[in-house]
C-alpha cells in the first residue's frame, strides 16, 4: 500500500498529493510517470510525476479531478493509502545542454513540466517558461516554475493573470522580439501541444511533447497507448511518453482519448449521485 503523506488543494479541482514510494522516489527521473490504482475495483491510470522528495521517500502527483477515479482521489485524505503505484515508467526526458530552452506548460501539464524545466536549467541552459491556463486560478506552481526558469511568462485566456491570450501568442511575441530558441518542450492538453507544435515547426524550433494516452498496464503489454509518430506506431508507455512533437498525430491522439467518453460519463454520474459530490471537489453530502 502507498500512503498519502500530504495533500493540498492548488486550484479548483486540482490537488497535489505526496505519496510514500521509496523505490520510485529513489530511481525516478524527470519525464517519467506512474500507474495509479486507487482501490480494488479501480482502473489503472497513468500520471506523470511532478516532483520527488528523496528524504521523505515520496513522489508528488498533481491531479485534476475530471472523472470518477480522480474525483475519488480528491476525496482521500492524508494518511489514506492506495493499493497500486507502479513506476517510474517510460523513458526519462533527454536532458542536454543545448543553449536556450523554451518550456511551455498548459493547465495540469505544468506539473510534469516542472522537473524538466529545473533539470534543463541545472545543466546550464537558459530556460524561458510560458505557463497558460483559462484563468488565473488554474495556473499552478507559478512560484516554483519561476525558480526553475530564467524568465517566466504567464498567459490566461481571460486575462485574469499575465498576458491575455494563448501560449502560442506568447511564443510568437518572444520570437517577434528577436528571441531565439534551440529547443522547445511542451506539456499540456493535446490541443495546446498540437498548436504549439504547428507554430514551432514554422519557426524551426525542435519540440518535445509528453503524451498522455489511455493506458492499462504501462509496460508495453496491451498496446492501448499506441500513437502515430511520423510513419511509425509507437507505444507511449515504453517508447515515450515524450516524442518529437512535429511528428505526432495529435488528431488521432485526441480521438483515441475519447474512446471511453460515454462510459467515463456514466461512471462519473453514478458516482456523483451516490456520494453527492460535484465536480468542483466539494462534498455536498457527507458520505465520507
Amino acid at each position: 500500500m502507498y500512503q498519502i503523506l500530504h495533500k493540498e488543494k492548488l486550484g479548483p479541482d486540482i490537488y497535489l498529493y505526496r505519496f510514500q514510494a521509496p523505490d520510485i522516489a529513489r530511481y525516478r527521473k524527470p519525464g517519467q510517470f506512474v500507474i495509479v490504482r486507487i482501490n480494488e475495483n479501480g482502473e489503472r491510470i497513468p500520471i506523470t510525476i511532478a516532483d520527488v522528495d528523496t528524504e521523505e521517500s515520496s513522489i508528488t502527483l498533481i491531479v485534476q479531478a475530471v472523472g470518477k477515479t480522480t474525483l475519488q482521489m480528491a476525496q482521500m485524505k492524508k494518511g489514506d493509502s492506495i493499493p497500486t503505484l507502479t513506476g517510474p515508467l517510460g523513458e526519462p526526458t533527454h536532458i542536454e545542454k543545448v543553449g536556450r530552452v523554451l518550456c511551455v506548460g498548459g493547465g495540469i501539464g505544468i506539473a510534469p513540466l516542472y522537473p524538466v524545466a529545473g533539470a534543463m536549467k541545472d545543466i546550464g541552459n537558459h530556460v524561458t517558461t510560458i505557463l497558460g491556463a483559462r484563468s488565473a486560478n488554474l495556473i499552478i506552481l507559478a512560484d516554483l516554475m519561476r525558480e526553475s526558469s530564467d524568465e517566466l511568462i504567464i498567459t490566461t485566456d481571460d486575462g485574469t493573470e499575465g498576458q491575455k491570450g494563448l501560449v502560442t501568442d506568447a511564443i510568437r511575441n518572444l520570437v517577434d522580439n528577436g528571441e531565439k530558441f534551440d529547443q522547445c518542450i511542451a506539456m499540456g492538453p493535446p490541443i495546446m501541444m498540437k498548436f504549439v507544435c504547428i507554430l514551432t515547426e514554422k519557426l524551426g524550433i525542435p519540440t518535445i511533447v509528453s503524451l498522455n494516452p489511455i493506458m492499462v498496464d504501462g509496460t508495453g503489454m496491451c498496446g492501448c497507448c499506441r500513437v502515430t509518430v511520423g510513419d511509425e506506431v509507437k507505444f507511449a508507455c515504453i517508447d515515450g511518453p515524450e516524442f518529437d512533437g512535429h511528428k505526432v498525430d495529435f488528431d488521432e491522439l485526441m480521438a483515441r482519448l475519447a474512446t471511453y467518453r460515454a462510459e467515463e460519463k456514466e461512471a462519473l454520474d453514478l458516482y456523483s449521485s451516490e456520494v453527492g459530490c460535484r465536480l468542483d471537489g466539494t462534498l455536498e453530502g457527507g458520505s465520507r
Binding site: 482502473e43 477515479t69 492499462v216 496491451c222 498496446g223 462510459e263 461512471a267
Partner: peptide, 26 residues
Amino acid sequence: GVLSANEYLTRANLMKAYDFPEADTP
C-alpha cells in the same frame, strides 16, 4: 474500437470490465 487481444482480455479479466461500472475499467 480496434484493440489488441491483450488489451481486450486484460480489461475483461484482470480489470473485471465485465463488472463495469461496479469495477471502474470500461
